[in-house]
């Protein structure tokens, strides 16, 4: 196996709040392979977005700070780079696509300039040539009439088209990793399918790795090669997508899969909700963060933190409970 494009080791990000410092991301480690699509799934407060922002050092500080860990990309620890060097990586070798395209695009600059800017900035390509490249990228994300679109402004586009522009922008410098944080959550379902299909196809063609952050288990099933499930700032389970859905081993993953209605599910079956509330990061329990809601919890779960341990060479979980009991 070739070296992964990204290695995250022991990443820990904390935020200072009125109620004391809370740990949004707690000792998170994972790899993203070349050309691989890795989904990070979790609910609000699970730490999935903070993980993504920490990788690119986009955590607002204060109140946030990356307290520990390493993010290895092309043999360098991104957390140790000076500001100029990390800027040289962002939008160049690692691109990011956010949930709300309207707030990620500059409303007063033409679409052409915004798509061409990273090419001009990072590749030192003259503007004329960068704009030509931008037209190419805009037609690559299947916006018709690309050449004349260069002079248009973001407000002239619909939500789906803006997200296409964001994708075009991310592709400018041929990144080896694209981080997409809930890229289609604000879009309608038919448009979501168009955008994610496009993103998947383009990353496959160019061998770009994709880190897809989402709460939607359907999206994960359709697009991801591997899945990382986060809860309360920690990874609770990780496995290849097929294995995770077929043999989930962590009670939280099992709970998610049985609580969400499926388009092809049995409608007579009652949904089995996960009891209780998502954890309050300022008051996490001493043991496993999921223990208070867990049906399989044993005494040990409440005072000791389970480590992420292998169940198979490709599958890891952080849970003390008997896996057979969990899956039932």
């Amino acid at each position: 196996m070739s070296t992964p494009v990204l290695q995250v080791r022991g990443l820990t990000t904390r935020f200072r709040t009125d109620r004391g410092e809370l740990t949004a991301v707690d000792d998170v480690s994972f790899d993203v392979g070349r050309g691989e699509t890795v989904a990070i799934v979790g609910e609000s407060g699970s730490g999935k977005s903070v993980t993504a922002l920490s990788i690119l050092r986009l955590i607002p500080s204060p109140p946030g700070r990356i307290a520990a860990g390493e993010v290895i990309f092309e043999n360098r620890n991104l957390l140790e780079l000076d500001n100029a060097s990390i800027r040289d990586i962002r939008g160049n070798k690692i691109a990011m696509i956010f949930q709300e395209p309207m707030s990620s695009l500059n409303p007063s600059l033409t679409v052409g300039i915004q798509v061409a800017e990273p090419i001009n900035e990072h590749r030192r390509t003259p503007w004329a040539a960068a704009l030509e490249k931008a037209a190419e990228l805009i037609s690559r994300v299947r916006i018709p009439d690309a050449q004349s679109r260069l002079a248009s402004f973001p407000h002239q586009y619909s939500g789906g088209m803006r997200q296409r522009i964001m994708i075009a922008m991310s592709l400018g410098c041929a990144p080896s990793l694209i981080i997409a944080d809930e890229p289609t959550t604000a879009l309608d379902v038919t448009v979501q399918a168009q955008i994610l299909d496009l993103l998947k196809q383009i990353t496959q063609e160019s061998g770009t790795a994709l880190m897809l952050i989402t709460h939607d288990l359907g999206v994960v099933a359709r697009y991801a090669d591997r899945v990382i499930v986060m809860y309360g700032g920690r990874i609770v389970e990780t496995a290849p997508a097929r294995e995770l859905y077929k043999k989930p081993r962590h009670p939280y993953t099992v709970g998610l899969l049985t609580s969400v209605p499926r388009l092809d599910g049995d409608t007579r079956r009652r949904l089995i909700p996960i009891d209780g509330q998502p954890p309050d990061l300022a008051r996490l329990p001493a043991g496993c963060a999921f223990a208070p809601r867990c049906r399989a919890a044993v005494a040990r779960c409440h005072h000791e933190r389970p480590k992420l341990e292998p169940v198979s060479p490709t599958h890891q979980k952080a849970c003390f409970a008997n896996a057979e009991l969990v899956v039932q």
Binding site: V189, T190, Q192, A193, Q194, D197, D216, L217, G218, V219, V220, A221, R222, Y223, A224, A241, R242, Y245, K246, L257, V260, R262, L263, D264
Partner: peptide
């Protein structure tokens, strides 16, 4: 209906896509 993904990678792989 075709646009909504089903939370099962095996079902997804076999589903016809109509976009």
């Amino acid at each position: 209906l075709a646009a909504v993904p089903v939370a099962d990678p095996e079902v997804e792989a076999a589903r016809p896509r109509m976009i």
